[in-house]
Nucleic acid binder design. Structure first.
Lengths: 235, 235
DNA sequence: ATTCGCAATAATTTCTGATATATTCTTAAT
DNA sequence: ATTAAGAATATATCAGAAATTATTGCGAAT
């Protein structure tokens, strides 16, 4: 549970990133350095290093001279990210299917198994381990493309995945049954070395997820506005 | 000429990045903090912030507890980058051609004109302004895809472009005539709203550049090995 | 010769505190 | 209501030092 790591810098970087991804730090929130210093119990310099890393990855905004802010969210941004993920992940999947050896098949089988078990548990109503579930989801998607032989591609994809994940965590509602079916389809198509089928499934998977999340965002936005407005202050 | 900017942090970030891109800081070189402190005349904390940004963009390696190193180069890495650039830039070009309005056409015409003039000057033997020439090349490629309507895509592309550029600067030899022709082809096809033709030209442009650079790297590598070996010390 | 362990050295990581500068908030005035 | 000046707050930057970790050099042992 605890996010430990060799260096204090990296570990606070990971902690802040996690808090952004899972919504503990809200979109658009001002990141006051003194507050963060208390919250993550670390020094100013270390904090700023972490924030600079996050800023260059796009999880934090850092307008000059005005400090740091959690990156705001928007349906437009989510759309861009989903489409980029389709572009990169589908491309990587093709390469991976073409290049993958037996070792790769092994990791894939393992990853899908673990994800599948977790999905069954979620479907039966156990919502207690969303975070673990998401980790298995990541491991599965990662395994699918892991044989693409481009570390540059893998690292771009990792960042995109995290950005997409943030939106999913934001709306806290998922497409359990359907997503599980799509995962199975991708898995089987990849093992069968059928790139077209696998890519089609992956594309559907991401775009359906996008649709679903955008809808949920729309609702959330409306209810947020209602909550925020003082009664009768419609201007 | 001077790289000035509002904040010291950003300006040293830019300076270091420039020194990496244009080879003043050699691939693989150790970035000793005390040396950098002298070289860029700034404080430790500011330096580390800049280096962390560069590390998360992939221009610097930062193995835990062991400091910072200029990212090494390799033909494999260049290949990955070129192919990613093809993937992203071609995609963006299609979107841009589909979405671009008259305003976009205007910037494109202007960018191509400036690049063209500079190319003529370079072809006639004036090698004095490589840096300016490269800036116009960037402006042109940027203009081509600027109407793609995805700021996420544009920013990923910008980083990839810089990484690719670094390799070009490394070998210091360019394909003047051919590159100019390819630029013209892209330009005309884009204005004619012919995505297939434009994308084909762009793909050729990048992949020919890759080929050319890899060859030049091979030669450079050989001559470097010869230079380094003390005479007769073949092991 | 090579390897191994250990001390000496060097470098990085992290923190504290201080200053200058920019932004934001408050208050007063138009 | 808007603006302007001044006060309060926050950020950006720097210097120095403590703590931790890596690297180097040297002598002993294989």
């Amino acid at each position: 549970m605890t996010q430990s790591s060799a260096t204090v810098g990296t570990s606070t970087y990971l902690k802040i990133k996690r808090d952004i991804l899972f919504g503990a730090l809200e979109p658009g929130a001002k990141l006051k350095l003194d507050d963060l210093k208390a919250r993550y119990s670390t020094s100013l310099s270390t904090l700023r290093e972490a924030l600079n890393r996050l800023a260059s990855e796009g999880f934090v905004d850092a307008p000059e001279q005005r400090g740091f802010f959690v990156k705001p969210v928007s349906a437009k941004d989510l759309g861009e990210i989903a489409h980029l993920r389709v572009l990169l992940e589908c491309h990587a999947l093709r390469l991976s299917i073409a290049n993958g050896d037996t070792e790769w098949e092994g990791t894939l089988v393992a990853a899908h198994h673990k994800l599948h078990v977790m999905e069954q548990r979620m479907l039966s109503g156990d919502e207690s381990e969303t975070e673990a579930w998401k980790r298995y989801d990541w491991e599965f998607h990662q395994a699918l493309i892991s044989a693409c032989k481009s570390s540059n591609l893998l690292s771009l994809h990792a960042t995109l995945y995290d950005k997409y994940l943030r939106y999913q965590m934001l709306v806290l509602t998922h497409r359990g049954q359907e997503a599980a079916a799509e995962h199975r389809e991708m898995f089987e198509a990849a093992l069968a070395r059928d790139p077209d089928r696998a890519v089609a499934a992956l594309k559907t998977h991401i775009l359906k997820g996008l649709e679903h999340t955008v809808e949920a965002m729309g609702e959330a936005e409306v209810s947020a506005e209602i909550t925020v407005q003082s009664p009768g202050s419609a201007r």
